[in-house]
Write a protein that binds this DNA or RNA. Structure first.
Lengths: 157, 157
DNA sequence: AATGAAAATTTAGAACT
DNA sequence: AGTTCTAAATTTTCATT
């Protein structure tokens, strides 16, 4: 990998993962360091790809996208070219925010975010079911969400 | 709601969702505005809760967490107090990054991120299966991920 | 609500230990 | 790797329109 994380790097990642607008100065103070080395470490973590990007997390419900649905899918064909095509098609649907190839009772697990149950129905009918080789499709409609984060507990690494 | 988004707000959200380190100045230029009103709009979007937080997105694999697993769970009891207790327990497990109550073939869908298949096995045996009233547990192990984002296509709102 | 300018703060980098 | 110091850039506030 060319670069191993030490405990300072890990602490910096933990802080930025929780609040990326925190200033380098504030992070440095929390670590008992000056800003320059902290700044350089952050740049290194970005350059090496430990930090992929910085994003604003929006409140989907406030924006009008009130429904999250997970969809388990099995395909009838499993040729490599078809799987690739399937993933490509799925990527073009703006409703889909995650697409995982999985082992278990499905081939793929999708996560999508839409306005409401009607928009979900429209997606299924006018987009998803038009894909060829589709086998079983099983939807899990989110009723409520107890936890939903991207933040990894770094104390365990 | 007290505050309706106009097209400028939506564009600002779209930009910050993609890169929250983009400067107010750069956003203002893209919109043909000066920094002040853009700055004030961003503060308003934060205050009103449209923007929940700003985070660094890490590369889980590089950090050593190479496995993502989805777990569908049914419970044997469904009293309100038990459901609440279940969610509370689940929230204490650092491996779990998402916990959704769903309708369909499961009661809950969990998403967890762990080091490897061994850590997953350990989680199941020494944490998950110790919870009472657990019914069916079905794991979907991620083989590869075609798409995984938090970014919502705002052109449709 | 937006403009333009000033003040406060942060970033980014050079020189040095 | 870290510290200190400094210049440049950005953020933030505010008087004005």
């Amino acid at each position: 990998m060319g670069y191993a994380l030490d405990s300072i790097d890990t602490k910096i990642l933990a802080m930025l993962q929780n609040n990326s607008n925190r200033t380098t100065k504030s992070i440095a103070e929390a670590l008992g360091m000056t800003t320059s080395p902290v700044f350089e470490r952050i740049k290194k973590l970005e350059k090496e790809g430990y930090i992929k990007k910085y994003v604003a997390v929006l409140d989907n419900k406030k924006i009008g996208l009130k429904l999250t649905v997970f969809i388990g899918i099995t395909l009838q064909g499993h040729t490599r070219s078809y799987l690739e095509k399937f993933v490509k098609e799925i990527n073009n649907f703006p409703e889909i925010i995650e697409c995982h190839r999985v082992s278990g009772n499905f081939d793929y697990l999708l996560k999508l975010v839409v306005e409401d149950i009607e928009a979900y129905e429209t997606f299924i009918i006018s987009k998803l079911t038009l894909l060829p080789y589709l086998g079983n499709v099983q939807s899990l409609i989110t009723l409520s969400t107890g936890k939903e984060t991207n933040e990894i507990d770094l104390s365990r690494i």
